[in-house]
Amino acid sequence: MSTLKGPTLKGPTLKGPTASSQPKDGPSPTCMSINGVSYALPNDPRTTLLDFLHQNLALFGTKKGCDHGQCGACTVLVEGERINACLVFAFQLRGKAITTIEGIAKNDELNPLQSAFVKRDAFQCGYCTSGQICSSVALQKELADKTPSAVTFSENYSAREDISERMSGNLCRCGAYPNIVDAIEDVIALEPQ
């Protein structure tokens, strides 16, 4: 058992994080990988992943909406699974590979879901969009893996209802929901089932 004792507030601030290319055997236990780059964990254990992205790494694509896990604006992928970055301490993710919205495109090539969101006008103000896209990237894999949702066991089933249920952790206060579902359906239709 290892122990990290405080003081937690007066430690040196990590202004410029230690960034290095990710080693072949993955990030070390005192680091996490974000979009393929390895970073040292923040000194203050109270730092959530969301605050680490903003305050230490200047990665502002992941948005802070409610900061309580209710809106989904901060959705990121951990080892391909979506989570709320506001409800996890950075230290809980040591050794993990995280993908934020900045890592969704491959170089200059947009992810098909990003293109579909543009094509379908699946946003208005755009504040929730990075979370919506990260969430839908994970959703694509969940559907390919045939994981169930609450709609799987409901009285009335439709594919659109199923997508809405699976995306219910991402709120859009502009109300772009129909277009968001359209965008997701466009891409999922292209996927071999």
Partner: peptide, 30 residues
């Protein structure tokens, strides 16, 4: 509020955890 941080890696290590009143286990943390 600030807190101290300890890690439990194996079930058997529970015997060596310090018994600080008010300590909490954290799993997912949601």
């Amino acid at each position: 509020q600030p807190f101290n941080l300890t890690h439990l890696n194996n079930t058997s290590d529970i015997k060596s955890l310090s018994s600080i009143e008010g300590a909490r286990f954290i799993a997912g943390g949601t």
